[in-house]
Every structure is written in C-alpha cells, then in structure tokens.
C-alpha cells in the first residue's frame, strides 16, 4: 500500500470520519438511495426523479443556479461584511481598503457584484422558462406566487446592495430608484420617507439599506426559498414532460 493509500485508509477508518459519514462512499444504487434520503442537504431531492426533468434543456438549471448564486453571494457577502461599516463617513473608504488592502478583497467584491447581477438575470430567465412550460398551472399555482415573491426579494437584495459602496453611481442610482417610489399614489411622501429615513439619500438611508441588505431580505429569501423547494416536491416534482 502506498503512503497516500495508507493516509486515505487511516482517515476513513478514524472514529471522527466514521461518526461523520456513517456509511462508506455509496457506489451501488441502494446505498445512493440511502445517501440522498439521509443526507440533510441531498434530501432536498427525492431519491428518484423523472427522466425528462434531469435533461439540461428542460430546466436549463436556472432555478438551481439562482440558488447556487444565492449561496455564493452569502459567502462572499459575509466576508465583505468584516471590512465594511455602513457609515456615510466610512463606507467609501472601506470599499477602497477592501480593494487594496484586504486579502482577496478586490476579487471578493468583484465576484459578489457579478454574481448578484447574474442572479437577477437567471431569476428572470427561470421565470420565463417556467411560464413557457405552463408550469404555473395547477397544482403549481401557489409555487408560482412564491416565485414572484422571490423575484421581488432578489431585485430588492440587489437594489439595496447597490447603495452600499457610497460612490456617485450608487448615490444617484438610488436617488432615481427611490424617487419612483415617491410617486406611489396616496403613499408618496410616507413611502419615500420610510425608504430613505429622510427627504433625500443620506446616512439614515445607508443604514436602512444595509440592514435590509444583510439581514432582512436574506432571511426572508431563505424562508421563501425553503417553501419554494418544499412545494416543488409536494406538487409532484418538476412539471412536464411537454
């Protein structure tokens, strides 16, 4: 036995490893069924899925990839949070520091930015895929509604994040965006005031958007994602075939 094989065996036979994974790596159908059923992450899936549903050209993996990007954004976002203070005096400096001083800071910020745009884009495409397959029809009506809520949350996550760098792009984009909300009939002044925490974009806005961005919307999204995935299975799995 080579050295590497002995290390491999040593790890796999250790008490720690065997407490983590009760069974050896599943190679046959039966143990793979068990693995999918018993692993907390894998059991999002049923043990077997209908053939057409695993074809790339049916879902284009768009829902799954939206979720994957949500996870990427959570991880990169948490890293950025260590170096960012939501203060009108500090935020911009913090972004500059992230880009120049923080290890992998620039890369993390870039990935966070591009993944965010990509997620909004994929969620739109996912919605179109679902529509063209008529997958909102019974029994999936309610999951479509959950989806619309997720679309709203995704856009709001992106929008609230847009302000955080506190540069000219951010400031004026949010000014335009929130001005629109200011024209809501009956609620014009209150809705704008509640969003901004004042009459124009300022320190209160930054703090509000920050809390919404890192806490409120991610939590809400996680809850609605859980319902969304649960409902897919309770509604009988992926729709189709066409």
């Amino acid at each position: 036995m080579s050295f590497l094989e002995r290390v491999d065996q040593g790890i796999r036979q250790s008490a720690v490893w065997r407490s983590l994974f009760r069974n050896p790596y599943p190679n046959d159908e039966r143990s793979r069924a068990y693995a999918v059923m018993n692993n907390v992450f894998l059991h999002l899936h049923p043990v077997r899925v209908r053939q057409h549903a695993v074809k790339f050209a049916y879902t284009f993996c768009l829902g799954g990839l939206s979720f994957f990007l949500f996870l990427v954004l959570t991880v990169t976002g948490v890293y950025l949070m260590f170096f960012y203070a939501p203060s009108a005096n500090m935020a911009y400096t913090n972004i500059l520091q992230i880009q120049t001083e923080v290890p992998f800071g620039l890369l993390t910020r870039n990935v966070h930015r591009w993944a965010a745009h990509l997620m909004v884009f994929f969620v739109f495409l996912h919605m179109m895929r679902v529509f063209y397959h008529g997958a909102y029809k019974p029994p999936r009506e309610f999951n479509w509604v959950v989806g619309v809520v997720l679309l709203f949350l995704t856009i709001m996550l992106s929008f609230t994040g847009y302000l955080l760098p506190w540069d000219q792009i951010a400031y004026w984009a949010i000014t335009i965006g929130t001005n629109m909300a200011g024209y809501a009939p009956l609620f014009n002044t209150p809705s704008k005031f509640i969003l901004l925490g004042g009459l124009e974009v300022g320190q209160n806005t930054l703090l509000r958007f920050y809390v919404l961005h890192i806490m409120v919307f991610p939590l809400l999204a996680a809850i609605f994602l859980a319902v969304h995935f649960w409902r897919i299975r309770k509604d009988g799995g992926i729709s189709g075939p066409l």
């Binding site: 009108a88 911009y92 972004i95 500059l96 880009q99 620039l106 890369l107 993390t108 910020r109 870039n110 990935v111 966070h112 930015r113 591009w114 760098p165 506190w166 540069d167 000219q168 792009i169 951010a170 400031y171 124009e200 974009v201």
Partner: peptide
C-alpha cells in the same frame, strides 16, 4: 469575471 473585470467604483457620493 471577478479576476478580469473590476466592479465599478466612482468618486465618493456627493449630493
């Protein structure tokens, strides 16, 4: 994308 295209950042916000 992250390696080759930087996220935009302009001057400090100025009302």
């Amino acid at each position: 994308m992250g390696l080759f295209v930087n996220a935009p950042l302009e001057d400090l916000a100025n009302p």
